[in-house]
Amino acid sequence: MSNKQLITNVGIGLAAASAGILARKTLQKSWEKVAKQPAPKDKKSENTDLKEAVTWAVVSGIGAGVARMAVQYGLDKRNPK
């Protein structure tokens, strides 16, 4: 693997990870507006019921995963190997 390919792969990975983090933060803000309470962070919290925790896990997991995949797909399309 050449240095250029390595740098490209690292860059794609960082961009995808950043997109996942940004998506999760955006989802947290959206959750707070819709639910009128902070997104569940601690599964041991007495204020978080199971349904709420599972819903948040599914929503945030899918949102972050789709964002990472979309960025990686887009960058792969721009820079074919």
Rank of each mutant, 00 (worst) to 15 (best):
M1R: 12
S2K: 09
S2E: 10
S2C: 12
S2T: 15
S2N: 15
S2D: 15
N3K: 14
N3F: 11
N3L: 14
K4A: 14
Q5F: 07
L6Q: 13
L6E: 10
I7P: 00
T8H: 12
T8V: 06
N9Y: 09
N9H: 10
V10T: 12
V10Y: 02
G11E: 01
G11Y: 03
G11P: 03
G13L: 04
G13F: 06
G13C: 03
G13I: 04
L14N: 04
A15F: 01
A15N: 05
A15H: 06
A15K: 04
A15L: 02
A16D: 02
A16P: 01
A17T: 13
S18H: 01
A19W: 03
A19P: 03
G20W: 01
I21Q: 07
I21A: 13
L22F: 13
L22G: 15
A23D: 00
K25W: 06
T26S: 11
T26A: 14
L27Q: 09
W31M: 01
E32G: 01
A35C: 10
K36R: 15
K36L: 08
K36G: 09
D42G: 03
D42H: 09
K43P: 11
K44T: 15
K44S: 13
E46P: 02
E46Q: 13
E46H: 10
N47M: 08
T48D: 07
L50S: 10
L50I: 13
K51G: 02
E52H: 08
A53C: 02
A53V: 02
V54E: 05
T55L: 07
W56H: 07
W56N: 04
A57F: 06
V58F: 12
V58P: 09
V58H: 06
V58T: 11
V59G: 00
V59M: 04
S60F: 01
S60A: 13
S60G: 04
G61L: 01
I62N: 03
I62D: 02
A64T: 11
G65H: 04
G65M: 01
V66C: 10
V66A: 13
V66S: 09
A67S: 04
A67L: 04
A67D: 03
R68C: 13
A70E: 02
V71W: 01
V71S: 00
V71G: 00
V71C: 01
L75K: 06
D76N: 15
K77D: 09
K77L: 13
R78P: 00
R78W: 12
R78E: 08
R78M: 14
N79A: 06
N79E: 05
P80E: 06
P80C: 05
K81T: 14
